[in-house]
């Protein structure tokens, strides 16, 4: 039977030949191991948290503004401490100091096209630039609305009003709603991320929702239905019960 399709034997051979050629290009970055699996003593890729006690990216005024915002987004109440005491602002500052703040690990060349809301931010600005710009705009809005006062000097209700204006986009600043959502998202991350990244102080966020933290073995409890999990939450850095409280034995 003669071939009816245009996909001839000759074309098949030449195209698969090309595939072989591509597959056998030297320097293809595949590692081959034989015998025992490779292993090195002390091998680890630990997280490298920045030390606290200072601001890395935010200016002192910007930091005060962020602290005021996070305390309105997560106000202290009978359930938990507020966003400021939980360290959400320092979490945001340290994230901005890393690859997140500079979008180092994202494709940041054009073209920049407005995407769908589900696609997230599609613009050309880095988070650091968006914070700088957005915080300045928020302050300007506060000053315009509340007789020249900075945002962080406003009463709580006034701060809520300014934030609501931003959330609804009812200000003369086009990225206002996007900026509000950025800060809201980062504040929640700071409240619930591992404490080694600067937020979630003393695992307050995890205690609040009953999350056991960075654990990975529940075999002893998996059949204990309808009973609370007995162990306290656990950070990557450990938990207070690791320490004896004895200075000579602690570290």
């Amino acid at each position: 039977m003669p071939p009816t399709s245009s996909f001839s034997r000759r074309r098949f051979l030449s195209s698969t030949g090309l595939l072989f050629l591509i597959a056998s290009v030297p320097g293809a970055r595949a590692a081959e191991h034989s015998g025992t699996l490779p292993w090195k003593p002390f091998a680890a890729l630990p997280p490298e948290p920045l030390p606290g006690g200072r601001w890395y990216v935010l200016t002192p005024d910007e930091a005060r503004t962020v602290e005021a915002i996070v305390d309105r987004l997560i106000p202290a109440d009978e359930l938990s401490i507020g966003g400021k005491d939980a360290g959400c602002a320092s979490f945001i500052d340290r994230q901005l100091a890393g690859s997140y703040g500079s979008s180092d690990r994202l494709y940041m060349q054009g073209p920049f096209v407005a995407g769908l809301p589900t696609q997230g931010y599609q613009g050309a600005e880095t988070p650091v630039a968006r914070y700088r710009d957005g915080l300045a705009a928020l302050n300007k809005h506060a000053q315009a609305q509340f007789s020249g006062k900075n945002f962080f000097d406003l009463a709580a209700a006034e701060q809520d009003q300014a934030l609501k204006d931003f959330e609804a986009g009812k200000v003369d600043y086009k990225p206002a709603a996007g900026f509000f959502n950025l800060v809201l998202q980062n504040t929640m991350e700071g409240f619930f991320a591992d404490p080694i990244y600067g937020g979630n102080k003393d695992m307050a966020g995890w205690k609040f929702i009953g999350f056991p933290g960075a654990r990975y073995d529940y075999r002893d409890y998996i059949t204990a239905h309808n009973k609370p999990f007995p162990l306290p939450p656990l950070s990557i850095a450990g938990r207070p019960e690791w320490k004896t409280g004895d200075k000579a034995g602690g570290n």
């Binding site: 680890a44 630990p46 450990g238 320490k243 602690g250």
Partner: peptide, 11 residues
Amino acid sequence: PSFGWNLGDAD
């Protein structure tokens, strides 16, 4: 795995 990075001497 190595725990040298995560656990101090007293730990």
